[in-house]
């Protein structure tokens, strides 16, 4: 077994519950080195039933598929039974393609209830990684909101709870850390979006023992490459990327242009996969969470987690190409 192969195997199958320090180097292993290995370089695409590639959560080594499922707007369908059934079908397709993380928030209207109903309809065996948020002020109302969210999800507990948009984080984070210590929560995180309050987020990442950070990153919004993504790698913090398509606007504008022929080299059949592969191939990114209300789209999105990933040179080429359009 070569050194590279051994590193690859340890990357793909880390020992469960390893300690953060031991795993930090593992998580830092970039996709460029993984993608250069023969195993992944052999094919430009991936079979439709391919398992999604995964990355380790630095604090535990638990593996997560590179593509998750967001629920902002798309799952806020109210009490409409046909629309709720359609959302459940999206979740079914997501899990069938190997997906795990579904992300929501009390801010997202009826999305939590829609997810809960969908999970119940799919039965108790789906391997969901339940990620939600706390979004309330004052902080003393946090526990009640978390409990209300848990009931809507119809889950015994959340895997990940994040402070939404840094709202009252000084009060919520201690509450979430206490839940984690008591075994009622597995991971703690914090979120921002659209480039807001990055200075404060950086300070939190430096000072608080959080497991996850969620932020906006895509082919055009790349500020986080400067400080936050390197800092997440340095501190062993998993990164969830929201707004990978700028809420659809990015794909809408890219749709006017043909996909460059060289996109086939990294197994892209469309702009959505192009945009997602750019994001999830960043060494610091753990997963992206595109939101969709269509089964076909969730299947396309999940394919972005399979096959060849762009290396650093290809990522620069992708960003430059889109910037020039």
């Amino acid at each position: 077994m070569t050194d590279d192969s051994a590193r690859l195997l340890s990357y793909l199958h880390p020992r469960p519950h390893s300690r953060r320090a031991a795993l930090r180097g593992l998580a830092a292993l970039s996709f460029s080195s993984v993608a250069s290995l023969p195993l992944f370089a052999a094919a430009s695409g991936a079979p439709a039933n391919a398992e999604p590639r995964r990355k380790a959560i630095p604090s535990t080594g638990e593996m997560l598929p590179l593509v998750g499922l967001g629920s902002w707007i798309t799952f806020n369908v109210g009490d409409d039974p046909p629309a709720r059934r359609a959302c459940a079908e999206v979740m079914r397709a997501f899990f069938a393609a190997g997906g795990r993380m579904i992300d929501s928030s009390p801010m997202y209207g009826s999305s939590q209830a829609v997810i809960g109903e969908g999970l119940a309809a799919l039965g108790g065996n789906v391997p969901v990684f339940a990620a939600d948020k706390v979004w309330v002020t004052p902080g003393e109302r946090g526990p009640a909101q978390v409990e209300a969210s848990r009931r809507l999800w119809q889950r015994p507990r959340f895997d990940l709870l994040q402070v939404h948009n840094l709202l009252a984080w000084q009060e919520h984070l201690p509450m979430l850390f206490a839940m984690k210590a008591a075994g009622r929560l597995r991971y703690v995180g914090i979120t921002t979006s659209e480039g807001r309050r990055h200075g404060e987020l950086e300070a939190i990442m430096r000072s608080q023992p959080i497991d996850f950070v969620q932020l906006s990153y895509n082919l055009l919004d790349r500020d986080v490459e400067e400080r936050l993504l390197p800092l997440a790698q340095e501190r062993g913090i998993a990164v969830i990327v929201n707004r990978p398509f700028r809420q659809g606007a990015l794909l809408q504008s890219l749709a006017r242009h043909p996909l460059p022929p060289w996109a086939r080299e990294i197994g892209c059949d469309g702009w959505a996969q192009f945009a997602l592969k750019f994001i999830v191939s960043h060494p610091a990114v753990t997963c992206a969470i595109p939101a969709t209300s269509q089964v076909a789209h969730v299947q396309q999105n999940m394919l972005a987690a399979t096959g060849v990933m762009p290396d650093a040179a290809m990522r620069r080429r992708m960003a430059a190409h889109v910037q020039a359009l």
């Binding site: 806020n76 109210g78 409409d80 629309a83 209207g109 659209e194 809420q247």
Partner: peptide, 27 residues
Amino acid sequence: MSEWWTYRLSDFLMFSTPTYYRLFERQ
């Protein structure tokens, strides 16, 4: 929140166009 000025009107949109018009269909 000190960054209210950075929000756009579209940031407050919570639902999709089909979901909005479905309300009238359901009613």
